[in-house]
Design a protein around this nucleic acid. Structure first.
Length: 682
DNA sequence: GAGCACTGC
């Protein structure tokens, strides 16, 4: 095999991705590895492992309504199966729709398939992701994100345009994947001519085939069939510790060190759970390197809140004779593929968010990885040549790992999902056939929230206009309510900006060096105001626009350009949506900050804390002690009497995030129904 | 003076 060099995508692909995400910057995940890049496209297609299963796949689809394709990465199923179906004429029965969990892979796959067919994307092969679509009346193979399919369901509940739906990467079990699968099950019972292909990892195949079966089905002709496809991964040898280790950050560093001394050249990828651990390991390893005056080892961090230009560093091939070590969070498990990796170090832990309906908060906890994750991490070593994985736990610990992480649906706040299902006519949410039903408490807590927001009535029916509006808006129920009220108050322009800023990943960059972190903090103060974090975000956005939306501005103030750009796009879309589709009047409050804070209160009145005389905040509804998150603007300011927050996060304490100062009398003014109830209860 | 993994309409 030829020596690997990272390759950019074709020019038109780059454009598409730049449009989708980060302006002129190439997105980190836009890099693809293609070992056969010097072969013609036809030969490449013929060489893919999946080629010899083509007839089998087509046969299975003729005879079963659901086909579960079990295959490792690298089999080519995402690009080839849609083409096999098309070449066999399946498109005559309706479009071939393929859902993907991520935007970038949706665009990349569509471009790749169009290219293999010698066409431009947008003809036979098209794609739709939020903000961006390339489809025409000719389009028969349509790639889309899961969220898009869900939106289409609102307009066409039986998906009558489609003959086949392929749900790719279903094993990831995102919230939206599970929503789509649950709804597709309903549709399949009503439309026997609709076919479904699920692409899954080995351990989930039986789960899916059990889910897609129902009583009364003919046992000679089961509804679903499993089909396994070999991948094209190299062998990966596994190494375990003999004894459990006490400190996996230190162990990671020592493993890198030993490995570097005794193993042949090849890059190393180490998985840790968070930014803090990555930076700690980075420091330690650099000390080792400095101490030994080593010159042939290059260490790089990789986590979500680095700027794109810093992230890009991990994609370059190191100079000859130098080994690259990437210390990464879970971002390297699915979202990005780092080229050249031969050795993987897996610390055995992962950070997960877990919703707690009792306090309506998320907990952020470090837990042992699942077997599925451990396998996925190990697989990152086998993409170039046979690799090695060093697991920083014992074989016994590995054997005892849970087969997989509970799906997102079982550990998330549900109000958005409940609204969507209600809008699709699912009356009794508690009886909806979810692939993995969420805890009843989570559903009940969501119903309570929606009732408080006046989105559903006592019978659980969507209200008009509020409920239907909230169901259609593409963000959380509380933000939607805030937008609705802003139209009436006359401050929708600013509120839309705030919503856009809350929807994107943090705009505050977190550099790796301590000195830069300090400068960042000081730079961020520039935008801070006493009213709190939401108004601060509004200031940042306004300054970004005023200064010409440049990367230089972001660099100067330690802001993440790609996230601000995305906020900008979101804002544009929301403005159009709000004005044209929902008839929300777009006015500016012209600097009336109090109006904005009232409007924020109208959305978040269920999430209020008051300052107890003991000097700590308490949740108004339950009396639970809360603290202001150290990342909040209000952390260093004198404590206000009443605040609303948009998020509660349990780590060492129960922290309020995105906090806004309010006045007590606004609560009874804006939410009299709710505040009478709670005062009685108290 | 504590610390946010990741994705999506």
């Amino acid at each position: 095999m030829a020596t690997f060099k990272p390759k950019f995508l074709k020019p038109e692909t780059d454009d598409a991705i730049a449009d989708a995400g980060g302006g002129q910057e190439p997105q980190s995940s836009a890099f693809v590895f293609n070992a056969n890049h010097n072969l013609g496209l036809v030969e490449q297609r013929e060489r893919l492992p999946i080629r010899k299963y083509r007839d089998q796949i087509l046969y299975c689809l003729e005879h079963h309504q659901v086909v579960i394709l079990v295959g490792e990465t690298g089999s080519g199923k995402s690009t080839q199966v849609p083409q096999y179906l098309y070449e066999w004429g399946w498109h005559s029965k309706g479009m071939i729709g393929i859902t993907e969990p991520r935007r970038v892979s949706t665009v990349t796959l569509a471009n790749r398939v169009a290219q293999e067919r010698g066409e431009l994307v947008g003809d036979t092969v098209g794609y739709v992701v939020r903000f961006l679509e390339r489809i025409s009346s000719e389009t028969q193979i349509k790639f889309m994100t899961e969220g898009i399919l869900l939106r289409e369901l609102l307009a066409d509940p039986l998906l009558t345009q489609y003959g086949v739906i392929i749900v790719d990467e279903a094993h990831e079990r995102n919230m939206l994947t599970d929503m789509v699968l649950g709804l597709l099950k309903k549709i399949l019972r009503k439309r026997s001519n609709l076919k479904l292909i699920i692409s899954s990892a080995t351990i989930d195949a039986s789960f899916f085939s059990e889910f897609f079966s129902w009583p009364g089905a003919d046992s000679d002709h089961p509804l679903s069939v499993k089909l396994s496809i070999e991948g094209r991964m190299h062998a990966v040898s596994h190494f375990y510790l003999n004894e459990p280790c006490a400190d996996y950050v230190r162990e990671t560093v020592e493993t890198v060190w030993k490995l570097h001394q005794k193993e042949s050249l090849g890059d190393i990828l180490a998985f840790l759970t968070g930014q803090e651990e990555v930076l700690e390991a980075l420091d330690l390893l650099r000390e080792y390197i400095a101490g030994a005056e080593m010159t042939n080892l290059k260490v790089l961090p990789m986590y979500g809140s680095m700027t794109s230009s810093d992230q890009l560093a991990v994609f370059f091939t190191p100079p000859k004779g130098v080994r690259k070590v990437v210390l990464a969070t879970n971002i390297a498990e699915t979202s990005i593929t780092i080229p050249g990796i031969v050795y993987v170090i897996d610390c055995g832990y992962v950070k997960v968010k877990w919703y707690n309906p009792a306090t309506c908060s998320d907990s952020l906890v470090v837990v042992p990885v699942s077997k599925a994750s451990a396998v996925q991490r190990a697989g990152r070593a086998g993409r170039v040549r046979p690799g090695k994985v060093y697991r920083l736990y014992t074989k016994q610990d590995y054997d005892a790992l849970a087969p997989r992480q509970p799906p997102e649906m079982r550990r998330s706040e549900m109000s958005g999902a409940v609204l969507q299902l209600k809008a699709l006519g699912i009356g009794n949410i508690l009886r909806f056939d979810f692939p993995s039903p969420p805890p009843a408490k989570n559903l009940l807590s969501a119903l309570e929230t929606l009732y408080a927001l006046d989105a559903i009535d006592e019978q659980g029916q969507l209200t008009r206009p509020v409920g239907f509006l909230l169901a259609e808006l593409p963000f959380s129920a509380m933000l939607s309510k805030m937008l609705y009220v802003s139209g009436q108050m006359g401050c929708a322009e600013e509120i839309i900006t705030i919503i856009a800023m809350l929807q994107v990943q943090s705009v505050f960059s977190r550099p790796a060096s301590a000195a830069a972190q300090q400068s960042g903090r000081i730079a961020h103060r520039h935008f801070e105001v006493a009213e709190g974090d939401l108004i601060t975000l509004l200031n940042i956005y306004s300054a970004f626009v005023e200064e010409g939306m440049t990367k230089e501005f972001c660099g100067q103030y330690y802001l993440i350009y790609r996230n601000l750009k995305r906020a900008c796009e979101l804002r544009e879309q929301l403005l159009t949506l709000a004005r044209k589709k929902y008839g929300i009047a777009i006015f500016s409050c012209k600097g009336d900050v109090e109006m904005l804070c009232k409007c924020i209160t109208a959305g978040f009145f269920t999430q209020v804390a008051y300052l107890h005389h003991s000097g700590v905040y308490r949740q108004i509804s339950s009396g639970t002690e809360l603290a202001i998150h150290p990342n909040s603007t209000l952390y260093t300011l004198p404590q206000a009497q009443y605040v609303v927050y948009s998020e509660l996060l349990q780590t060492t304490k129960l922290f309020m995030n995105h906090v806004t100062v309010i006045k007590k009398e606004w609560l009874t003014e804006l939410a009299p129904h709710y505040y009478q109830q709670t005062t009685v209860r108290d």
